[in-house]
Write a protein that binds this DNA or RNA. Sequence first.
DNA 1: CCGCTGCATTTGTCCTAACAATAGCACGAA
DNA 2: TTCGTGCTATTGTTAGGACAAATGCAGCGG
Lengths: 252, 252
Amino acid sequence: MSTEPVWPGELFADLDRSGPIPLYFQISSRLERAIRDGIIPAGARLENEIAIGQHLGLSRPTVRRAIQELVDKGLLVRRRGIGTQVVQARVSRPVELTSLQEDLTRAGHHPSTRVLSLDRIPADEEAAQRLRVAAGTEITRIRRLRSADGTPMAILENLLPPEYADITRDDLETHGLYEMLRARGISIKIANQTIGARRTHSDEHELLDLAKGSPVLTMDRVAFDQGGSVIEAGHHCYRPDLYSFETTLVSR
Amino acid sequence: MSTEPVWPGELFADLDRSGPIPLYFQISSRLERAIRDGIIPAGARLENEIAIGQHLGLSRPTVRRAIQELVDKGLLVRRRGIGTQVVQARVSRPVELTSLQEDLTRAGHHPSTRVLSLDRIPADEEAAQRLRVAAGTEITRIRRLRSADGTPMAILENLLPPEYADITRDDLETHGLYEMLRARGISIKIANQTIGARRTHSDEHELLDLAKGSPVLTMDRVAFDQGGSVIEAGHHCYRPDLYSFETTLVSR
DNA sequence: CCGCTGCATTTGTCCTAACAATAGCACGAA
DNA sequence: TTCGTGCTATTGTTAGGACAAATGCAGCGG
């Protein structure tokens, strides 16, 4: 099929060998862009790892690690004895640890948020269990309506443990919840998500501009920091005609 | 919090240094089981990488790679200057490249499958695009009803390219589609999935024992082999009260 | 008491080196 | 022709070493 291996060496002319950005990351990110932009076409075979290393003045492990990053993302496929190829399949962006706000902005839409409610309430049994606090603890409950270009897309309900009691409506309307947490130095390491479906409840159909009892796509998430403390527990519901979750799975 | 690092060395007494199973994999799988079984408790700190290597007679890169596997799965967290810890969060099984059949069996249920239809039809515009074949090509269409312990759970519609035209109803009822493809030496490398929700169509509510027009959870998938050829395109719909998708996300 | 400096610990990155395992191909024997 | 054998190319695994960067802590000075 393919004969000549390719290597667009000119893309890697300006590697920063002294800066703080790891070399393997500089390579993998440049390579990813080249593949996504079609500069390296689907199905093309890359040069072998040692030759790439010689072009760039790098060792094989470093090159190998850069390639591994893209294999994990599903952009490249390696086969022993054969080489490394760009996958033919169009890969979609995986479900990542980003917020809906950021997803939409990146897609070129104009997201807006209306804070429906923001209260401090004692945790009931279920909320206490999800946030890993004692029942009755004062927690913060947020309910927001997220729209894109004026069309309502999702209702976001989030529960926060007591230590984030001082957030304001303004923060939420302008910056998004995750962005705000990051600004406080809180970084999310792990999140467990469950995706499902159900009918609309109570006032949800009005907010989302749907018929009463129509289906919504739901996502429940509990997010943890590196120490294992719960940062946030959310229950979101999305208009299924406007939103879906995409994943790319790679076997190993 | 934690003071003494732990290392249950007795779990690693029988490493097979000559067999075909990589050492890093032997370590990571034993370690994973120890964590999931609670032998190493949540929050425990592991010994540092060099010390572990000395216990096992292995080099640091090998130990490091084993640990990395579990970090990617969300079971461990590493911090520079601190060490490696077992995460506090309970991790759920991620969405993997396995079939529903296997998921259910592993969960201790008794799955059964009824083949509703199995035909060869000319590909319409949409099917042709998903399978990357010319419109009008003869393809195989399968429609199955999957139940667990007698309760209907999902309707599975799959399209197969022309080369798999010789499968039989028996194959599908006893072995499951993916198991059957594997038996032919077909291995799936990459799959793109989209998860969404909609109302039931036509006869779906009867098959799934739901009210007419109730919500279903949907999953569309296109699976590719290592060469980028399409193996299968599926549209599945699930009873949302019995099925959901779980994911664990790890930031990097 | 508070803050700063320096040290020890630990993971993060990068290097060189070697051998194993697999796939494809050319070539030769039956 | 056809099958197998061996060669070559390429990735997979493992080793061992070096330095960088981040974290926590003890000790010191203000």
